[in-house]
Structures are given as structure tokens and as C-alpha cells.
């Protein structure tokens, strides 16, 4: 599936529309940035409540396809700017990391 499919299925708000044709091949849910660097697979949808600008740097480094920020949180303005530069899609969801991860799992992301 692509980032576009994830947007359609989750019904989350699009904070930054990056390259939505990118493939999403797995998912990862975590708020510790160092853990994401170590464990998340390239092509993942990353589910987090972190909103710091480092989220974008970590996502770019790992090769994350889409970041889903949960609990109605919003990214800081510098994070939004960086995401746009990296063509990284950021979604905002009012749901918890648990429910968003569950939805992605049901969609077939493993």
C-alpha cells in the first residue's frame, strides 16, 4: 500500500503532504527516538506522540514513509517545515497510538 492509501483508510488530518506515492511496507509504534533509529524498518508507518523536530530527522534517517502523530497532538512549526523539505507526510490523529496501530494492523501492515 502507499501513503495515499494510509491517509484514505485512517481518515487522519494531513499536516504535511509529502510524497504520498511512497510504499508503506510495515508499521512501528514508539516514542523513544533512539529506539526508532535502532529498530524501525525502512518503509514503515511510524505511530508516535512525539512532536519534536528530531522526529523528522529520525524519520528521514530510517526511511520512514509516513509519520502519524496521535492523541490530537500537533508538531512544532520547525518540524512541519523540515517535513515539507524532506517530502515526508505527517498525519494528525485524535486516536491513541494503540487504536491507530490497530487500524494499521487491520489494513494489513505487519
Amino acid at each position: 500500500m502507499t501513503v495515499h492509501d494510509v491517509i484514505e483508510s485512517l481518515g487522519a488530518d494531513v499536516a504535511v503532504e509529502g510524497d504520498t506515492t511512497r510504499l508503506v511496507t510495515s508499521g512501528y509504534t514508539c516514542d523513544l527516538l533512539s529506539e526508532v533509529i535502532a529498530k524501525a524498518a525502512p518503509g514503515s508507518a511510524w505511530v508516535t506522540i512525539q512532536t519534536h523536530v528530531n522526529v523528522i530527522a529520525v524519520a528521514a534517517m530510517v526511511g520512514i514513509s509516513v509519520v502519524i502523530v496521535c492523541e490530537g497532538r500537533t508538531c512544532e512549526s520547525d518540524a512541519v517545515e523540515h517535513a515539507a523539505k524532506e517530502h515526508l507526510t505527517i498525519l494528525y490523529s485524535k486516536g491513541s497510538a494503540y487504536t491507530v496501530s490497530g487500524k494499521l494492523y487491520v489494513l494489513g501492515l505487519r
Partner: peptide, 11 residues
């Protein structure tokens, strides 16, 4: 700590 080579343009 994990040895990750810094990418100055990103971090």
C-alpha cells in the same frame, strides 16, 4: 551509546 554517524544536514 549507539554509534550512529551524524548527518549534519539533518541533525
Amino acid at each position: 551509546y549507539p554509534r550512529i554517524v551524524n548527518d549534519p544536514e539533518r541533525f
